[in-house]
Amino acid sequence: MGSPIVDLAGVAKTFESRAGATEALRAVSLSVDAGEFVSVIGPSGCGKSSLLRIVGDLVEPSAGVVRVKGKSARQARLDRDYGIVFQTPVLYDWRTVLENVQLPLELAGRPRAEREQRPRTLLRLVGLDEFAGHYPWQLSGGMQQRVAIARALALNPSILLMDEPFGALDEMTRERLNQELLQVCAETAATVLFVTHSIAEAVFLSTRIVVMSPRPGGIERVVTVALPRPRVDATRADPRFFELVTTVRQSLREDPGLAGDRAGLRGR
């Protein structure tokens, strides 16, 4: 599959602050091919968000090389190759749902016809076309997050960066949105870098899972998820699904931060 879309080589990050230096990442190397869905999982504070921010050129790495589509991360950002979704939706009160999705198109100076059409298509894709005229605060948390996803897709980005996008949602909504997200990705052919705390979510969504170790953050292990696609509800009942969950969990063994998640899995 040609050259990788995202290519990290020896990336390190040290934050300097008054309290002293924090080494967040050390020697991270990773290649992501087009169309892949790569999840990043690891204990809290191991540098997952920092890694995502470095790929998106929101922070500079202290060392190492980041290439995105063969360009520097900065050039990729200026070319608007990214779509970003955070844990909170970050929607704007003064814009309707439709106008929030239009924002990236306005910023990129796209022609009027596209600014009218594209957001409507995207809202239909995330099942919110009826709510185009609503204000964000009139929507539930899950709906707001779907708006954020639609907005991230507005410029047809080749790379979708998602930092715990469903972290604040309940289990049921989360599973439904997982399903929707896979559909959306299939239709837009986006490559996804996805941070999560849920092992099950990571296994269900990904083609590969990057398990990170803490302090300083580094890649502990990369688990390839060879489950058949498209993933459906039955996938979660597949014995191989459980095997993969166990594999990932074992890679995370020493981590106390995921204890809650284990309890959640037992119930299912």
Binding site: D57, R80, V90, A108
Partner: peptide, 23 residues
Amino acid sequence: QSLELMRSYAATERQLFLKIRLP
């Protein structure tokens, strides 16, 4: 986060001001 979002869209200072800060 809002600022990061705008940065990821390569928004100019002017756009950031008119479309986000001012409203």
